[in-house]
Design a protein around this nucleic acid. Structure first.
Lengths: 148, 148
DNA sequence: CAGATGTCAGTAATACTGAAATTG
DNA sequence: CCAATTTCAGTACTACTGACATCT
């Protein structure tokens, strides 16, 4: 009979991984219905908020590897959701920007992702959710100083 | 300049994934120094707590796939940390149990994992940590009913 | 020359799928 | 016959590493 190992249920890293896997599944399923994956959505959100940016800046803002970001940006460009052009003032950089189609697609994805958050946190009321977000933010921000 | 997209920092699933990735890295590094990986530790903990169990029961208790569990159990057996024998009363099952060497190894790994938790939650005091564990437990437990 | 950027190839670890063989 | 268990082969996604060419 499968008992729940209490030591694991007291281990923050294990709980984070389990909840994270759960979240990943819910969000991925929601995005898949719209033909996108998690990193694609993340990049679109960042571009919508801070406007055009280089791939290196996006990587630092999103904690994504340059290499993975390159693949995602290429796919988004192929789908016409973003534009990618050489920066005239610094020709090492690509300037990545949302297109009108990208903005429309993001609106669709947003609805799906919001619904997934609700499913994920169904057992928590509004105050609990804010508590959780506040605590996680501190953990993530604390680590953010480590690399960049 | 990489700004932080506020919408992502308000998104529970994103925070969970980031904090989870952070936790995974810290724990994996700690375990690697002792020559183990995360699932190995998890299986050892479960066996130490609930005693001998079949692979199917371990999988359900730990939320691990049968297929992945098979690989982990094989590696632990090769290292002499667990024993694996056919169940005489139900010959479909393997009875997996800790060996003395496994118990010693677990004690070493425990120290490393506890240290990793401290590094992970460095920015939270004791009350905050308990709050976080309580909230995550509710999220995970809520989802637990979904499959098993 | 040192450093940043984008690109490319490849790897490790996790989560998962589908199927076969054995047993209850 | 149906269901559970173990085993096996293979896939998808994420995270990461190392290298290279280009540009500042």
């Amino acid at each position: 009979m499968p008992n729940e190992p209490e030591r694991l249920w007291q281990l923050p890293s294990w709980l984070l991984n389990r909840a994270g896997a759960h979240a990943t599944r819910l969000v991925a399923d929601a995005l898949q219905a719209a033909g996108a994956r998690r990193p694609h959505y993340t990049v679109l959100v960042a571009l919508a908020e801070q406007g055009p940016a280089s791939q290196a800046d996006l990587g630092r803002a999103l904690w994504m590897d340059r290499s993975d970001l390159h693949a995602v940006v290429s796919e988004l460009e192929a789908g016409g959701l973003i534009s990618r052009e050489r920066d005239a003032t610094d020709r090492r950089r690509n300037v990545v920007a949302l297109t009108a189609a990208g903005r429309r697609r993001l609106a669709e994805l947003d609805a799906a992702v919001v619904a997934a958050q609700d499913a994920l946190l169904a057992s928590l009321d509004r105050a609990d959710r804010e508590q959780l977000v506040a605590l996680l933010t501190r953990v993530v921000r604390d680590h953010a100083g480590a690399d960049r």
